[in-house]
């Protein structure tokens, strides 16, 4: 019996967020195929609505990946991103969904290990709590 494939969406900033993905890929790292990345200029652009809509449209977990705080190219962007994620986490419990399904991460461009670990964490969250809606795909 195969595990249902976790559908994970990641909003990555075009700076260190995507740089961390690229370095991992260019270091031969492998990660779960069903991760879908959406690139944004800065994680400060991410709206709670984007995260919630993704969950509505089939995502089992959503992460936001930005530059390290205080190292954000746009100064406070990844701090804003974390606030949005925090806001959505609060709403999730009201919606009856586990807070862990939505998470904020930060990375620098020199880390090849961090992105695969982020994906692994989110895959584990989906394995632990099951798909959203409890249906098998």
């Amino acid at each position: 019996m195969t595990e249902p494939r976790p559908k994970i969406v990641g909003f990555c900033c075009e700076r260190h967020g995507m740089d961390a993905v690229v370095l991992a890929a260019r270091s031969g790292k492998q990660f779960e195929v069903s991760v879908r990345l959406v690139q944004v200029p800065c994680t400060g652009r991410v709206d709670g609505m984007h995260i919630l809509r993704s969950l509505e449209e089939g995502a089992d977990a959503v992460f936001v990946l930005g530059c390290l705080e205080k190292n954000c190219y746009y100064d406070t962007g990844s701090i804003e991103g974390r606030k949005r994620v925090g806001y959505v986490k609060q709403m999730l419990s009201e919606l009856g969904l586990e807070k862990e399904r939505v998470e904020m991460f930060n990375a620098a461009s020199s880390n090849s290990w961090v992105f695969p670990e982020i994906v692994a964490k989110m895959v584990e969250v989906v394995r632990k709590f099951g798909p959203v809606g409890g249906e098998k795909r």
Partner: peptide
């Protein structure tokens, strides 16, 4: 404007 979108998100 630097095009980061922070104001948009918030």
């Amino acid at each position: 404007c630097q095009g980061c979108g922070m104001c948009v998100g918030i």
